[in-house]
Amino acid sequence: MIRAIRGATTVSDNDEQEIIAETERLLVEMVRQNDVRAEDVVSVLISMTDDLNATFPAKAMRHLDGWTYVPVMCMREINVPQALPKCIRVMMTVHTKRAQQDIQHVYLRDAIQLRPDLQLTKKSEI
């Protein structure tokens, strides 16, 4: 079965190293909480808000062992007034046996406010 795993995080500054580090942290946590293997990933979409442009967040995947062949695409988030600034969002599509309600979506840092309802089901505190 194919399922999507959502995730989001924020950064303090439009800084290449921070964007890559926080994106990697988010990806690692999404993988950990959902027992994802690289060969089970269909594709990964990563968006950033307009105030972030120092680097491609997909560079973070280069730090993950075995993820060389996983298709990834970066894009711009819709510029909605009052939206959470300096935000990186990930949509990871995977093959899994988990039921939809058993998928663990991951929200870190200030991005927790995007889906506080999903934080109640988290397996561990980050």
Rank of each mutant, 00 (worst) to 15 (best):
V42S: 08
D51T: 13
F56K: 14
L84C: 07
Q82E: 07
P116R: 11
A99D: 14
M48D: 01
Y107P: 05
V106G: 03
K97D: 15
I88G: 02
Y69M: 14
S47A: 07
M75V: 03
T93D: 00
V36S: 04
L120E: 09
D35F: 09
R89D: 00
V80N: 14
I46W: 00
Q104K: 08
M92C: 05
A58S: 12
R115I: 07
D65L: 10
V72E: 04
P81Y: 08
R98E: 07
Q101L: 09
A83K: 11
H105I: 00
R37Q: 08
D35N: 14
N53R: 15
S43L: 08
N79A: 14
D50L: 07
V80A: 10
K86I: 00
V106H: 03
Q101E: 13
K59N: 14
E77L: 01
H105M: 03
D35C: 05
A83D: 12
V94H: 01
R37N: 06
Q100F: 13
D40H: 02
T96N: 03
V94I: 14
S47L: 01
D51E: 10
Y69W: 15
K59C: 09
K59W: 12
R62A: 14
K86A: 03
M92G: 00
P71H: 04
T55Q: 08
N79S: 14
V80L: 15
C87M: 14
K86D: 03
Q113D: 11
S47P: 00
L45V: 02
V106L: 04
R37A: 09
V90M: 00
L45N: 05
W67I: 13
P71N: 09
L64P: 12
S43P: 03
H105K: 02
N53F: 15
H63G: 13
D51R: 13
T68G: 04
R37T: 05
S47R: 04
Q101S: 08
I46F: 01
L120S: 13
E39N: 08
D40Y: 01
V90K: 01
L45D: 02
E39A: 05
P57G: 10
R62W: 13
T96P: 03
I103E: 04
T49S: 15
V41L: 04
K59S: 06
K59H: 11
V44Q: 00
V72N: 07
Y69Q: 15
C87K: 15
S43Y: 11
C74L: 05
L84Q: 11
P116E: 08
M48Y: 03
L108K: 06
M91R: 03
L52W: 06
A60H: 02
L52T: 04
P116H: 11
K86F: 05
Q101I: 05
R115L: 12
S43N: 07
L118Q: 13
M73L: 13
F56N: 15
S47I: 02
T68H: 10
M92A: 03
L84K: 05
D110Y: 11
M92W: 01
W67D: 14
D102R: 07
Q33H: 02
L120Y: 13
